[in-house]
């Protein structure tokens, strides 16, 4: 009886065997055993049928529970997403509120300083300096330059706007006499760096595509820019099928640039110590002098 079948111990290829005999071999063995020993006694049969019934009920319940679990998990993911979005919006609101407070405080400081200085000519000169260095809100006519990634920027690097693009355009605008520049609402100062890390940063803020460079300056700034070498290059490359990034230059009146949020401390420059004070004298001179 056992000689009839190939021995299963020497299966060389498990997957082939699996494809050929998907049914559990134990079923056949059980059938053979039944044939040998005759049918089961009635009480044993009833017990087995009952157990089978219970197991089938469990399987049915398992299917239902698994289905419900999948259905239930979908809104959970949605909930997490919605929660994250809400957090982002809240943080953004609080950032905005803090920026407004900072601006108010800066205005207050400026007013107090003006009162302390007293001389109108000096105050005016200081205000001009403040506006140019980005420490004061500035309004006026100027130009809005919109530049954005091309449609395939994710894969085609030539269509991607990088921080050099922004730097070159900003430098050109400064050279053409812009009084103040902001990128995506971030005011530039003499201390603001445009850098690339994970994305493009203006100062400490991340800016994302599309980029809007707003400059306040001479009323013909837009014409000056489009006539400049940099403006010409970008206008020409915009129409080149290899690059296809978004680029537009538009003159606009009554632009308002926010004051820059200044870093709390200068990173490299130091206030020079008053002459003759002890800290100004070099302290390393006696070391190793005699020997």
């Amino acid at each position: 009886m056992t000689v009839k079948k190939e021995p299963r111990i020497y299966q060389a290829d498990f997957l082939t065997e699996l494809f050929r005999h998907p049914l559990d071999p134990a079923y056949e063995q059980a059938a053979e055993a039944r044939k040998r020993n005759g049918p089961l006694k009635k009480p044993q049969l009833v017990v087995r049928k009952t157990v089978t019934f219970i197991v089938l009920t469990i399987i049915g319940a398992l299917l239902a529970v698994a289905y419900q679990q999948v259905i239930r998990e979908a809104p959970d993911k949605e909930k997490v997403r919605a929660g994250l979005i809400e957090q982002i919006l809240q943080k953004r609101d609080s950032t905005r509120a803090l920026a407004q407070t900072a601006e108010q405080l800066q205005a207050e400081v400026a007013a107090l300083r003006d009162a302390a200085i007293g001389d109108p000519a000096q105050i005016e000169a200081l205000r001009q300096l403040d506006a140019i260095t980005g420490q004061r809100k500035i309004t006026g006519d100027g130009v809005v330059i919109k530049i954005s990634d091309g449609p395939h920027a994710a894969t085609v690097r030539q269509q991607q706007i990088n921080h050099y693009d922004l730097m070159i355009i900003v430098n050109q605008l400064w050279a053409l006499g812009a009084d103040g520049i902001a990128i995506n609402g971030q005011r530039l100062t003499s201390l603001t760096q445009i850098s690339s890390g994970s994305g493009i940063s203006v100062g400490s803020e991340l800016v994302v595509n599309p980029y809007e460079i707003v400059a306040v300056g001479p009323s013909d700034l837009d014409r000056r820019f489009t006539k400049s070498v940099i403006g010409g290059v970008y206008l020409q490359y915009r129409d080149d099928p290899r690059f296809r990034f978004g680029f537009s230059v538009e003159a606009k009146d009554d632009l308002t640039l926010p004051a820059a949020v200044l870093p709390p401390e200068l990173t490299h420059a130091k206030v020079p110590a008053p002459a003759g004070s002890p800290s100004a004298t070099p302290s390393s001179s006696p070391s190793g002098g005699g020997r």
């Binding site: 009920t57 049915g60 239902a64």
Partner: peptide, 27 residues
Amino acid sequence: AVLALIAGVVAGVLLEPTVPLALQPYL
């Protein structure tokens, strides 16, 4: 057998047992 399966599904739907978090990956 079919009746048992259906009974199980109905029981699962009606009772709505919550699966413990530790067992969820095995479902």
